[in-house]
Computed example of a mutant assay.
Amino acid sequence: MQRLTALFTAALLSAGIMSAPAMAQEDAASSEAAQAQAAAPATDFSDETLQKFADASKEIASVSREYTERLQNADDEAAKQEVRMEANEDMVGIVEDSGLEVSTFNAIGQAIQQDPELMKRVQAMVEPQEPQDK
């Protein structure tokens, strides 16, 4: 359970890293829509969408560990900023390769923080299914 919590924490932290550049790229109208969505995240995501989120989260958690170490070892603020930008690009790529938009990934991340049932659905998709021998 701690590993799963760490996974979601990494994914949500990554989502926070990704959201600022992604939002900056949107025009004013879609930015307002994204802010409205962030204020009241949807919880009616399909199982397919949640599975994509779970898969991307696992990969982001792995990548996040690498970048966290590199960030800690960076010599100065310029080097740290370079690591952050590289991490952001990689994590955005992971999300997009999963078939999700960054805004959808972020919305799911916010929704699972506010909805314990949704969190349980995603956890079930992340945790390996163990055979039940009785």
Results as ranks from 00 to 15, higher is better:
Glu32Gly: 00
Asp55Ala: 14
Ser46Asp: 02
Ile17Gln: 14
Ala78His: 02
Glu127Ser: 14
Gly93Glu: 14
Ala56Pro: 02
Gln35Ile: 11
Ala22Ile: 05
Val92Phe: 04
Ala42Arg: 15
Val126Met: 12
Val63Arg: 13
Gln123Ser: 13
Glu59Tyr: 00
Ile17Trp: 01
Gly99Met: 14
Leu50Tyr: 00
Thr49Pro: 01
Leu118Asp: 05
Asp115Ile: 09
Val63Ala: 15
Phe45Trp: 15
Ala39His: 03
Met125Asn: 03
Ala24Gly: 08
Gly16Pro: 01
Asp47Val: 05
Ala28Asp: 12
Pro21Leu: 04
Val122Trp: 11
Ser31Thr: 06
Ala79Pro: 04
Glu130Ser: 11
Glu69Asp: 11
Val95Gly: 11
Gln132Val: 13
Arg84Thr: 11
Glu117Val: 02
Gln37Tyr: 00
Ala22Asn: 12
Met119Leu: 15
Thr49Gly: 02
Arg84Ile: 14
Tyr67Gln: 04
Ile17Asn: 09
Ala124Gly: 14
Glu59Asn: 03
Lys52Cys: 04
Pro116Phe: 07
Glu69Val: 12
Lys52Val: 04
Asp47Gly: 09
Pro21Val: 02
Gln72Leu: 13
Glu26Thr: 03
Glu26Met: 15
Asp44Gly: 06
Gly16Arg: 08
Asn106Val: 13
Leu13Met: 13
Phe8Ser: 06
Ala22Asp: 12
Ser103Gly: 11
Glu32Arg: 12
Ile94Gly: 08
Val122Glu: 02
Ile94Arg: 09
Pro21Ser: 06
Ala40Ser: 07
Ser57Phe: 01
Val126Leu: 08
Val102Glu: 07
Ser14Lys: 03
Ala28Met: 11
Gln25Leu: 08
Leu12Ser: 11
Gln25Gly: 14
Thr5Lys: 10
Ala11Glu: 08
Lys134Met: 07
Lys58Asp: 03
Ala15Ser: 15
Ala42Pro: 00
Ala34Gly: 00
Pro131Gly: 02
Gln110Asp: 04
Leu7Met: 12
Asp44Leu: 01
Asp133Tyr: 10
Met125Asp: 04
Val122Ser: 08
Ala54His: 06
Met91Tyr: 10
Ala42Gly: 01
Met119Ser: 11
Ala15Asn: 10
Phe53Ala: 05
Ile94Asp: 12
Asn73Lys: 15
Met23Tyr: 12
Lys58Met: 10
Ala54Val: 03
Gln51Glu: 07
Met85Cys: 01
Asn88Glu: 13
Gly93Cys: 03
Ala15Ile: 07
Gln2Lys: 13
Ala87Ser: 14
Gln132Trp: 08
Gly93Asn: 15
Glu59Asp: 09
Val126Tyr: 06
Glu82Val: 07
Val83Arg: 07
Leu12Phe: 14
Ala6Tyr: 09
Gln110Gly: 15
Ser62Val: 09
Leu71Thr: 05
Val92Trp: 03
Asp27Val: 04
Thr49Glu: 09
Val102Pro: 12
Asp97Gly: 11
Arg121Trp: 07
Ala78Lys: 11
Gln113Asn: 08
Val122Ile: 15
Lys134Tyr: 14
Thr5Ala: 14
Leu118Val: 03
Thr5Ser: 09
Ala34Thr: 00
Ser19Lys: 12
Arg70Leu: 12
Ser57Lys: 02
Tyr67Cys: 07
